[in-house]
Design a protein around this nucleic acid. Structure first.
Length: 558
RNA sequence: UGGGGAAUCGUCUAACGGCAGGACAACGGACUCUGACUCCGUCAAUCAAGGUUCAAAUCCUUGUUCCCCAGCCA
């Protein structure tokens, strides 16, 4: 790292190494990348990896990155997705150099196809889909040439023009590249270039009855935009020979280098647009931005920050190896960010009433609480204290083990930013459930310590009953209970029934009555929470819990 | 039985012929008005077998395992 470089250095990877070499050798003087989503669904965490790679690399090397919509299949695409994709990319903190659409190139793509036909490198085929499959051969046997393969250039030109003119029904003809039906690479067995599809396109309307295929479109789009490094996922590795073939036949301004990397796979979730779509359509989740979804919009609503997602992408690296990232890595990234920026507050999720027997009736005291113990510059706030409080039900235990540092009969704890209290009595209902605790407080302990200097191991959070704000809290957990749901026969069967637990009677400190919309709060000792923007009732979504050493001890003892 | 890829701590990821390093997780401990944070420490890996070399994760040979490809989807 150079001394005057105050940017935090990102780890190098095989792609950044290639770029560095290309720059060093003057193959390129600047780099241009692109993020090319198809607008047929919402972006998810896997796309975030690709976004961070493409935009991140451009940023790191002082280059540019375009946002390009790969909109060549109007039947599956929608403007709703276009808008969500733009929002998500911008939210992640990236700004595209150019906003492009493959459909911007339809006219040029058509001209290049005519060029191909004139060179005898493409032909109009009348085989239907079923026949074409039969002619294609198998993985181990070569395919057979279509009877139309040697149609004259004049006839091909005429037919292709009439395809464009809309003279034929869907599926009647197909423009195919003339390459090699015996190629061991199936993508090279005369792949389709254009199909007839009389569908309305969200941008070009009804201008086109024919639409170009991905393999033909993508490489030319890259070339038109002068992309230097065309980065995509591993499954396109087999397509690279075709990518290069097309660009070798026609005169384009550039010949980008396609480089493939492994797509992100995260344990306990799925990153397949089709499956994600199914979860929404079949109502297993509320929406694309349901906080349990691994979509960018879901993570946003869950309270994840753009910085945490970028940090996550830096941590997971870029390689060609299939891998599964543990959820803990993502959680670590968000905890690390939120620990720095989240103001601390107190909220009781599962309230248990506490009466301070020796505290004056009707008295209220304003306690000073720090918004961030490690960052005094974040200031303080007042939290009202009174005779009747709520504490967390989990913070009381009858017959508590020695290691339990919280409230139990006869034991003393500190109420955060307030007094020491000792539990003297436990009140139960007829069923034997604890419904109230009677405590006494030590008036000398205000401020968290006593003149006699006695130690109190436990500190718990609390909320004054009469000042409490009622709220709903959504506790989120992993969406699936299987580490690789996509790899099972029925991923729906592995949905985690406890992925969402809604608590309706939470009691929060008064400052949370009007929370800031974009602030992620740390509810002390519980986790990080953000106000849910879609609910009318005051609702907080839990982004992630705090690490919980007690949970481990408790579990180990169980 | 075709073609294309990939194999390093539990999980990710460095090392590109020269001390297998880092992160996350786990486990211990210190600190603590959050059982959080922070700090310290521990555990832990080169797919296998041969070969080349003073020296191999790295080069060669032979295997093994895993992933992708037979849409007029991207």
């Amino acid at each position: 790292m150079s001394e005057n470089n105050n940017e935090s250095q990102k780890p190098a990877n095989f792609i950044s190494n290639i770029i560095q070499q290309d720059l060093d050798s003057n193959k390129h003087t600047a780099i241009q990348t692109r993020f090319p989503p198809e607008p047929n669904g919402y972006l998810h965490i896997g796309h975030a990896k690709s976004i961070c790679i493409n935009f991140g690399l451009a940023e790191d090397f002082g280059g540019k990155c375009n946002l390009r919509f790969d909109d060549t299949n109007p039947e599956k695409e929608d403007d709703e997705y276009v808008e969500s994709i733009k929002e998500d990319v911008a939210w992640l903190g990236y700004r595209w150099s150019e906003l492009c659409h493959a459909s911007d190139y339809f006219e040029q793509l058509y001209d290049y196809a005519v060029e191909l036909i004139k060179q005898g490198k493409a032909y109009v085929d009348s085989l239907d889909a079923k026949q074409m499959r039969e002619y294609r051969g198998t993985l181990t046997e070569p395919g057979r040439e279509s009877p139309d393969r040697n149609r004259s250039i004049e006839d091909n030109l005429d037919l292709f023009a009439r395809m464009r003119a809309g003279e034929f029904e869907d599926g009647k003809y197909l423009l195919r590249a003339k390459i090699d039906m015996a190629s061991p690479n199936i993508n090279m067995r005369d792949p389709a270039l254009y199909r007839i599809k009389k569908a309305h396109h969200q941008r070009t309307g009804d201008d086109w009855p024919i639409y170009p295929m991905y393999d033909y479109t993508h490489c030319i789009s890259d070339a038109i935009e002068n992309i230097t490094h065309s980065l995509c996922t591993l499954e396109f590795e087999d397509h690279r020979p075709l990518y290069d073939w097309v660009l070798n036949q026609v005169q384009t301004p550039a010949h980008p280098q396609q480089i493939e990397f492994a797509r992100l796979q995260l344990k306990y979730t799925i990153t397949s647009k089709r499956k994600l779509n199914q979860l929404v359509t079949d109502k297993h989740v509320d929406s694309w931005d349901d906080p349990r979804m691994p979509t960018i919009s879901g993570l946003r609503r869950r309270g994840y920050t753009p910085a945490s997602i970028r940090d996550f992408c830096d941590r997971i690296g870029v390689t060609k190896k299939d891998s599964f990232i543990e959820m803990a890595v993502l959680e670590n990234s968000i905890r690390e960010d939120l620990n720095e920026i989240a103001p601390r507050v107190m909220g009781v999720l599962d309230p248990l009433k506490v009466t301070i027997e020796n505290y004056p009736d009707g008295q209220t005291e304003d306690m000073q609480a720090q918004n961030h113990p490690q960052k005094p510059e974040m200031g303080t706030r007042t939290v009202p204290f009174s005779k009747t409080l709520y504490i967390e039900r989990d913070d009381f235990m009858e017959d508590a083990p020695k290691k339990f540092f919280r409230l139990s009969q006869g034991r003393e704890v500190r109420l955060r930013y307030a007094y020491y209290v000792t539990c003297t009595d436990v009140i139960k209902d007829d069923a034997g459930n604890v419904i109230e605790l009677i405590c006494t407080y030590d008036p000398e302990s205000r401020g968290g310590s006593t003149p006699d200097g006695r130690k109190v191991k436990g500190t718990i959070h609390w909320v004054s009953a009469e000042h409490a704000v009622d709220a709903r809290v959504n506790l989120y957990d992993r969406l699936f209970s299987h580490p690789n749901p996509a790899g099972t026969d029925d991923f729906i069967a592995h949905l985690n029934p406890e992925s969402l637990i809604t608590l309706e009677n939470c009691k929060l400190e008064p400052s949370l009555a009007t929370p800031d919309e974009d602030t992620r709060y740390q509810f002390e000792r519980l986790g990080y929470f953000i106000k849910d923007k879609q609910s009318d009732k005051l609702t907080f979504n839990r982004t992630v819990t705090l690490r919980d050493a007690w949970a481990k001890i408790d579990k180990a003892n169980a």
